[in-house]
């Protein structure tokens, strides 16, 4: 969704949902962090994001960010792992 509050200002909002059920018994995510389950899990991630730009005289300023939250849910009874991450750029 995009919105232009004024001629020099623009705002955008987005939302993604990411579901991964491909890891039943197969290693998929291979991260260096020990807490990451690499197999036998289901992953649900929700991802709201915002972006915007504005002109301040000769300077064009733009920024974007998203927040990720969700869960790695074990399908073999191991503890679930919560996901909380933010990315921001300017």
């Amino acid at each position: 969704m995009d919105w232009g509050p004024s001629q020099e200002t623009k705002l955008g909002f987005n939302f993604y949902f990411w579901k991964d059920t491909t890891a039943k018994g197969t290693p998929r995510l291979l991260l260096g962090s020990g807490e990451f389950p690499i197999n036998d899990y289901k992953m649900d991630i929700y991802m709201p994001g915002i972006n915007g730009s504005m002109k301040l005289g000769p300077v064009k300023l733009s920024a974007w960010a998203f927040y990720q939250f969700g869960t790695f849910e074990s399908i073999i009874g191991d503890p679930d792992v919560d996901i909380n991450g933010t990315l921001a750029g300017i």
Partner: peptide, 21 residues
Amino acid sequence: IEGLYITGDSDANDDKYKSIV
């Protein structure tokens, strides 16, 4: 001039992952 920031995790043994996938 441009910057990028991604949150991070310092504990590999808890059940929380504090970065992005």
